[in-house]
């Protein structure tokens, strides 16, 4: 999976959780939890969705790799 493909997946999954936030307006280097105004349950649901959709393991220890969109795209591209 390329980074662009990973970013497209992130756009869809964040859109499902935070439909009121314009993904294109989010700073790719900013904290996603703040940008999308999501709590720990939302974040767990996001990880669940990404894991199932992409068939990859995302252990809790890797959560810091998902802090920003840039980091997350890089992480998912490497995993996929």
């Amino acid at each position: 999976m390329t980074r662009d493909e990973a970013m497209a997946v992130l756009a869809e999954e964040y859109g499902a959780i935070a439909p009121d936030v314009d993904f294109a307006e989010v700073d790719p280097k900013g904290d996603v939890r703040e940008a999308f105004e999501i709590d720990s349950m939302d974040f767990l649901n996001l990880v669940t969705a990404l894991s199932k959709r992409l068939g990859i393991a995302i252990p809790e220890a890797d959560y810091p790799e998902l802090t920003t969109l840039d980091d997350a795209a890089t992480y998912l591209a490497a995993k996929g």
């Binding site: 720990s40 767990l44 990880v47 669940t48 894991s51 199932k52 809790e60």
Partner: peptide
């Protein structure tokens, strides 16, 4: 798996 994880 994520769907079976617990939160504090």
């Amino acid at each position: 798996e994520p769907d079976r994880r617990l939160l504090l």
